[in-house]
């Protein structure tokens, strides 16, 4: 059984851009440990000389013509979805404090 520590949970939360509460981190620790223990059984399989599968239907290099296509959705309609905008731009809080 793989041990997942509280530090591991916070590290994974950081990698995942999740700002977790302390109580939540404790609950997730037990869940993540159970899941990782379950998926660990894959180590029983001999996969030496086996190629990984990333795509199942064999499609490769699907191209489209090199023309601008807005898919029928305007710039304005997309910017309007943002929680905060100014002058047709998406507005965000300051990046550097």
């Amino acid at each position: 059984m793989t041990h997942i520590s509280t530090d591991d949970v916070h590290y994974l939360a950081q990698l995942s851009n999740l700002q977790l509460g302390d109580e939540e981190a404790v609950a997730l620790q037990a869940d993540l440990e159970a899941i990782v223990t379950y998926i660990e059984q894959l180590s029983e399989l001999d996969t030496s000389s086996v190629e990984p599968t990333y795509q199942v239907t064999g499609l490769q290099n699907v191209y489209r013509s090199d023309v601008v296509d807005d898919y029928g959705v305007s710039h304005e309609a997309l910017v309007a979805l943002a929680p905060d905008t100014q002058s047709g731009q998406v507005k965000v809080p300051k990046v550097l404090s």
């Binding site: 994974l12 990698l15 995942s16 999740l18 700002q19 977790l20 997730l28 869940d31 899941i35 998926i39």
Partner: peptide, 21 residues
């Protein structure tokens, strides 16, 4: 961090974090 913490359910977080792992 806060938008994602508030916007996702526990199962979403589990899966995202297992993925990161």
């Amino acid at each position: 961090g806060k938008s994602r913490d508030e916007g996702f359910m526990a199962e979403n977080k589990r899966r995202i974090m297992i993925g990161s792992y």
